[in-house]
């Protein structure tokens, strides 16, 4: 499309062409101030010209953003989006530190570790922490908890919610603004009721629920975290066709990634540990094989270090490989009690 075809006044058209703006692409990227100076017109008029240009070239998305390709974003826009994103705290500052502030919304994070290391504890903790009201620095949202192993304990969730509420109120003791409004929300029962719990007893149910998540999230509105504890349990039974298993899992992971992106919510997927034979020796590795290991944006391994628990960021496109110790206390996930072992960069 040519400048001459724009629905603007002929004088402005002339000015544009004589200033060298012959095609729309060059107009799309110019700032109103610069255009007003070059054309010697008012800024208001210049920005009108740009607006008309954008509309005509179809380069304005529905959300009023400039888009080069329909549905695409510039890296700059992604960066500013990311700046506004909140993180969901794990409950331990050290752990949050290696994650770059906590669990990221809009991404799929896989958490693996041996039985008893605290995967379920982390899951419950995140389901509680996502609900900390916005005035207290949280996200004030709901959680979806998909339990495939049956290890979710309401009484434990209640304990963690109670401790989370107490700690939050304690650290905001002198900050009263707006806090009265959410007084009735700061109750363990309220927190528990906002964990949407699904108990899954077979892999068919698991696939069905994951495929339905889109609808559930739309219905429930502000869901900001989906926790699946664990993704692997039902896929480790009798699967005759291993290629089929790989395909099904790949599809699940794509569904989860799309969901995370679309609703900017965090997806946290727990995975079990298995032994793998390499060169005659046995090594611990996460279950579900190599194809699956590409399926999650971030991968965090929880492991024992003597009697301490440690978390290790094994894979992430944006974080350095680092590890931190944490502990599972009566109140939930917290910093390790012995502070001798600080965050260790690899």
């Amino acid at each position: 499309m040519e400048v001459s075809a724009l629905p603007i006044s002929p004088t402005n058209k002339e000015k544009l062409i004589s200033a060298g703006y012959t095609n729309l692409a060059s107009l799309v990227i110019v700032s109103p101030i610069r255009l007003s100076r070059e054309l010697q017109i008012s800024v208001q008029e210049a920005s009108n010209i740009i607006k008309v240009t954008l509309q005509c070239s179809g380069a304005v998305g529905l959300d009023g953003r400039h888009v080069v390709l329909r549905g695409a974003q510039t890296a700059w826009e992604m960066f500013s989006d990311e700046q506004n994103l909140k993180h969901i705290s794990t409950g331990s500052e050290d752990f949050d530190g290696i994650l770059g502030g906590g669990i990221h919304c809009g991404e799929v994070t896989e958490v693996g570790g041996v039985p008893g290391i605290g995967k379920t504890q982390l899951g419950i903790q995140l389901g509680v922490n996502v609900q900390i009201p916005i005035v207290y620095g949280g996200l004030g949202s709901k959680a979806i908890y998909i339990d495939t192993e049956g290890s979710f304990m309401p009484e434990r969730a209640y304990q963690i919610a109670e401790a989370c509420i107490m700690d939050t109120l304690e650290s905001f003791r002198f900050h009263r603004k707006g806090a009265e409004d959410c007084h009735e929300r700061m109750q363990p029962n309220y927190f528990l009721a906002n964990i949407l719990y699904f108990r899954i007893c077979s892999y068919t149910e698991q696939i069905a629920v994951i495929n339905n998540l889109n609808k559930i999230v739309v219905e429930q509105k502000d869901v900001k975290i989906v926790i699946i504890d664990s993704i692997s349990f039902h896929f480790r039974q009798d699967f005759e066709d291993m290629a089929l298993r790989t395909r099904v899992l790949k599809e699940l992971s794509q569904t989860l990634m799309k969901l995370a992106k679309k609703f900017t919510l965090a997806v946290v997927v727990m995975n079990q540990v298995t032994t793998k034979r390499t060169d005659g020796s046995f090594q611990l590795t996460l279950a579900l094989g190599d194809t699956w290991s590409h399926s999650c944006t971030n991968r965090v391994i929880l492991h024992w270090d003597g009697n301490d628990r440690r978390a290790y960021v094994e894979k992430s496109p944006s974080l350095p490989q680092a590890s931190a110790s944490f502990s599972v206390t009566g109140k939930g996930i917290r910093n390790a009690i012995s502070h001798s072992k600080r965050v260790r960069m690899m």
């Binding site: 309401p154 029962n189 528990l192 009721a193 699904f198 339905n212």
Partner: peptide, 14 residues
């Protein structure tokens, strides 16, 4: 059969 979310408060704790 559509799966419904459950409220953890209503889960059995026997």
């Amino acid at each position: 059969m559509p799966m419904r979310a459950e409220n953890p408060l209503h889960l059995s704790a026997e």
